[in-house]
Amino acid sequence: MQLSTLAQLRRDQAEKRSVVRSVDLKNGDETLLYPFEDTGNSELLEAARIAARNDRSGTVELPGGARFLQVFNPPLRMLIVGAVHIAQALVPMATLAGYAVTVIDPRRAFGTLERFPGVTLLDDWPDDAMATLAPDHRTAVVTLTHDPKLDDPALQVALRSDAFYVGSLGSTRTHAKRLERLAKAGLGEAELARIHAPLGLDIGARSPAEIAVSAMAQITAALRKGERS
């Protein structure tokens, strides 16, 4: 590895870019690939895209010889708006799945530390918090409050960000009203279509823990299969 490559990797990490180091195993020649920024469709870039999406470094055989693809992804983050009951179930699941979780709720009584041990709690207003946290392509955003005053401002930031997943709790009817409000606020059709709502995969979830499971499964599908519905 060249020192200049390592320096570039450092800069990329600071900028939260996904980068794949491709090494020619015959001679050690290396190049850095940006699979989610470079829109090319070479075999190498496609392989890098799959490797990055799966967080899986490995060797690929290409016409030009074997290449080792080493994945450097920014850490996964989950931003949850609403320190509610479902959040209590979703936080430990997301933590186990490797996410650094932040719970945002300006209602102080909700976001008590005992209910969310070991998690970053912010009592800022959701749009401020979201703007500061700047969701990137390794960030999932989930709103759980049902309260337009809290959910909507967060969604407005999330839908204009690179977040790989945006989900919002609420029935089909609640969601229809939400879409009307957000459209009035100036969000376009494509942006609104990114919201996963009702939240989670349809597995008949009833309890908060089950809803958290269905949300976690949907988030995982978005991450690993690149489904940005």
């Binding site: 390592l6 990797l9 990490q13 967080d55 899986r56 470094s57 080493q70 994945v71 450097f72 992804n73 920014p74 850490p75 996964l76 186990l96 799945a97 490797g98």
Partner: peptide
């Protein structure tokens, strides 16, 4: 969890540092 996390930045990063 450990498997995949080893492959993302954290583990590798310390070694490179």
């Amino acid at each position: 969890m450990s498997g995949d996390n080893d492959m993302t930045m954290r583990g590798t990063e310390d070694v490179l540092t």
